[in-house]
């Protein structure tokens, strides 16, 4: 299982990657593995506001439904639309092709409150 060093994480298994003024968001390798084959994804629209800790969408595998929780608050400025047609990208490449939304943070401080790779790994090990 991969946990890239340069990302921030939530306990709900989302990752956040600051990129210029925006933050890309997806789910972790651990999360996709637990879910199994992802076959459906429901994402917000560009312009929607998301709030830290609140649901911004849904991923479904053949067997399970899982809510997506926003790691930070802000405005959705881009959505990875190809995922709707190719949700398997979330399994195959959760940290790159499988990114879900880009958020323009309303409170950049929230990023510093997220887990770093080491803390996230400890969190996953506890669950395993």
């Amino acid at each position: 299982m991969t946990i890239p060093d340069d990302l921030k994480y939530t306990k709900d298994h989302e990752w956040a990657r600051p990129k210029g003024a925006r933050v890309l968001v997806g789910i972790t390798d651990f999360a996709q593995d637990q879910l199994g084959d992802v076959v459906f994804v429901e994402l917000p629209a560009v312009g929607d506001e998301v709030k830290k800790g609140e649901s911004f969408g849904v991923v479904e595998s053949t067997k399970a439904v899982s809510e997506l929780f926003a790691p930070i608050s802000g405005k959705v400025v881009e959505v990875n639309d190809p995922l709707v047609e190719a949700p398997e990208n979330i399994n195959e490449d959760p940290y790159e092709e499988g990114w879900m939304i880009a958020i323009e943070p309303s409170d950049p401080k929230e990023l510093t409150e997220l887990l770093d790779a080491k803390a996230y790994k400890a969190h996953v090990d506890e669950q395993g």
């Binding site: 199994g36 084959d37 076959v39 595998s61 053949t62 067997k63």
Partner: peptide, 8 residues
């Protein structure tokens, strides 16, 4: 067993 290599 719910799955081995993967459901699909």
């Amino acid at each position: 067993p719910v799955q081995y290599a993967g459901l699909i």
